[in-house]
């Protein structure tokens, strides 16, 4: 089987003010083709003002199997939330 074109992940900003969001993937021979393919595949109805394509093999991802251990430090730090603090009602603007 011949070698496949590399895989790129596609991120689209639907309008200014919003972040880029992951839309899916495309195969392409190079970066320029990846942008064009992403535009043709994911924005036929002007769903985007900006596209990022990233080669899939350069993405580093956290391991879902390790999520509990990885995110554990955040679990018991409730004092990071404003609701943890009791402020008397008479005090305004806090």
């Amino acid at each position: 089987m011949k070698q496949e074109w590399p895989l790129y992940e596609v991120f689209i900003r639907s309008r200014s003010g919003l972040s880029h969001r992951h839309a899916g993937s495309v195969h392409a021979a190079d970066d320029e083709m990846a942008l064009n393919n992403a535009r043709d595949t994911y924005t036929r109805r002007k769903e985007g003002v900006s596209i990022w394509v990233v080669r899939s093999d350069t993405i580093i991802a956290s391991d879902p199997e390790e999520s509990s251990a990885f995110f554990e430090p955040a679990e018991d730090k409730i004092y990071r939330h404003p609701t943890f603090y009791e402020i008397p009602d008479e005090v305004e603007n806090l």
Binding site: E4, L7, G24, S25, V26, H27, D40, T41, R44
Partner: peptide, 19 residues
């Protein structure tokens, strides 16, 4: 064509290649 591509893309996340 676009729908086919979204779906191939989704299938590939499961570890099967386009080829």
């Amino acid at each position: 064509a676009g729908h086919g591509l979204y779906l191939y893309s989704a299938a590939e996340t499961l570890g099967v290649s386009r080829d």
